[in-house]
Design a protein around this nucleic acid. Structure first.
Length: 284
DNA sequence: AAGAAGTCCTGGGCGC
DNA sequence: TGCGCCCAGGACTTCT
């Protein structure tokens, strides 16, 4: 599932590929994914890309922006010579076919290249929003501080955790508390910090919070370094898989021996209705 | 007011 | 082999 590192990888990839290009058409498969008016986008150039938590924002030259959430299985794949790839004419690309069965939106650029939005589970969306109005979007307004920004200090992290009584993993994943962290990196950060995901936030000791702060930043950096985690359907803007899943320690490792060699076994429980992986032997 | 449960959606895993 | 059942999972909505 695309989280902060995966969305960052897509952003960095597309920054090199589509900035400056004019959108001359958009093909939209009927459905709820594309929200807004196509006419507000066609004819505009791509001015730049930004990321806010798990949201990707494509700013256009006409004061409109595309706000994109990939949710579980969203993909943004760019094809430089995609001029023959349309819904009627699929072409082979990066070991797959574009457009795929899961393609819902195709952006056509002036130079014949194309950007494909694929989404197997159709949870994601592309919203057309006035650039000026982005900060007022409910989802963005409610966002908590974001890792790697100057607001996200250890002190701020302590403040966030100390006021919550819920299990620490749920708070790490709550976008209104901390923005950008999802299930994979929450599991990994807690494993590195050797903290039980079920621990109540306000009962964590200062030392533990410090360790968790470092671990969280460290696993997010690692995710970016390895090109994202392709545990689910994630691919980068060139259609390639990431490698973070090859380095994950706890996520989806149930039954495997604990990588800390503590003698324990990674187990899987459900927390907040979500799969939670940890070593009950060394995560206390 | 906070926490639990339901919702969306589809491929994949499982049992028979 | 093949059918049907059920589940994951981010974030929002609805219920308790």
């Amino acid at each position: 599932m695309p989280e902060l590192p995966e969305v960052e990888i897509v952003k960095l990839g597309l920054q090199k590929k589509i900035v400056g290009l004019e959108i001359i058409d958009i093909d939209i498969k009927p459905g709820k994914i594309f929200r807004g008016e196509k006419e507000k986008v066609v004819g505009a150039r791509v001015k730049g890309l930004r990321r806010k938590g798990k949201l990707l924002i494509i700013d256009l030259s006409n004061r409109q922006s595309l706000v994109i959430h990939l949710k579980m299985t969203g993909q943004l794949v760019y094809h430089k010579n995609g001029d023959t790839a349309t819904f009627g004419h699929p072409i082979p690309f990066a070991g797959t076919i574009l457009p795929a069965k899961t393609t819902h939106v195709i952006f056509d650029f002036f130079d014949g290249s194309r950007l494909f939005y694929n989404d197997m589970r159709k949870f994601g969306y592309i919203k057309v929003v006035k650039t000026d109005g982005i900060e007022k979007l409910k989802e963005i307004q409610d966002y908590g501080p974001e890792p790697f920004t100057k607001e996200f200090t250890l002190e701020k992290f302590k403040e966030i955790l100390s006021k919550k009584k819920s299990p620490v993993k749920l708070v790490l994943m709550d976008q209104t508390e901390i923005t950008g962290v999802g299930n994979i990196y929450a599991n990994e950060a807690l494993f590195l910090a050797r903290i039980d995901p079920q621990r109540k936030c306000n009962e964590l000791k200062d030392k533990e919070i410090e360790k968790l702060y470092e671990s969280l930043l460290s696993v997010l950096k690692e995710g970016i370094k390895y090109g994202g985690s392709s545990e689910n359907a994630f691919v980068n803007s060139s259609g390639e898989l990431g490698h973070m899943q090859e380095h994950s320690r706890a996520y989806r490792k149930s039954g495997k021996p604990c990588p800390n060699k503590c003698g324990g076994t990674i187990k899987r429980i459900s927390l907040g209705g979500r799969g939670t992986f940890f070593c009950s032997n060394c995560q206390k």
